[in-house]
Design a protein around this nucleic acid. Sequence first.
DNA 1: TGAGATGATTTTGG
DNA 2: CCAAAATCATCTCA
Length: 381
Amino acid sequence: MDDQTRMLTGLTGLAGLAQADVGDPDSVRKQQSLGQPQQDIGDILQQIMAITDESLDEAQARCWPEESPAHWGGSDDPTEGGRAGGGMAGGGLPLNFQHRKHALNCHRMKPALFSVLCEIKEKTVLSIRGVQEEDPPDPQIMRLDNMLLAEGVSGPEKGGGSAAAAAAAAAAGGSPTDSSIEHSDYRAKLAQIRQIYHSELEKYEQACSEFTNHVMNLLREQSRTRPISPKEIERMVAIIHRKFSSIQMQLKQSTCEAVMILRSRFLDARRKRRNFNKQATEVLNEYFYSHLSNPYPSEEAKEELAKKCAITVSQVSNWFGNKRIRYKKNIGKFQEEANLYAVKTAVDAANVSAQASQANSPATPNSGGYPAPCYTPDGRL
DNA sequence: TGAGATGATTTTGG
DNA sequence: CCAAAATCATCTCA
């Protein structure tokens, strides 16, 4: 960078240009001390301007001086280039394009000029572009990442996945035997998804790094002939990564969808609903009808019932919720059942041998609770 | 195979 | 937040 600043002090025209284009106050100061190589710089600058002013066709045409040798003159005199750039494009030039290019490349001022051009470019084009290209971590992709991690698709090999699945299975509250069968099935499918996901991800990553390398090499190569700063290359790499990450997001999205479908297929409790066994229903009904005036078992009662029926507490709650609403909705339909359990309870309580009774008197609402059938303690209705 | 039963989940209301 | 009510999805059985 030292070289560069030293060189800058001599850049009469360029400093002006930089100031005009970029508004860099420093360049004003820098142009005040003029060194010896002023002539050379002016010359090179003119040449550069001439090149940029030329159309591609003109430049190409000049690569072949033998086609119009008379046109080119023969002078190597640097003062020849002292005219305005625009004029050069129209009139005869002292050097053909390749010669000029070579001369420029070999010139000792070239690195300094190049870095100045890079700087100007950076400050104009790139800064404008940079405004809309800030990339905060995409919330969408973060969400997808989190979900994939939680489902055990990404992240550590087995631990996360089976733990999450086990937790889900436990939450679903199925019976241990068939849940383990379905569980292994689920795990197999999840592993399949996981494998596909990882292989695709690897493919994308490989393609991304290959492409990035390719572009970087290309830009490095080009940076020998046109002003490309390392920062610009960096920026390009960032752009490529953004593009690839948007592709990755699609992969993640579809993986998430696949996992969700799998989950709903295997782990949605409704999909593997089993009716409670007869004994369990009996226990629950017994409790319900014997507490018909207040069919709301306490937490302890629920736990007790859950244990007796080999189901979970929340299943007991569900059962009572369903039972209450369905009983209330259609008392008539449950009358027979109510009587049956009423008899049963009464008999148990009185500890006397009961005789079956087919009477079905209409239920009468009891105080504040659910309508209950009438019965006497000895089992007669 | 379809209607009703039933367990689970979601929505609603206090 | 809890229970009621509505709804869903599956099971059972004629």
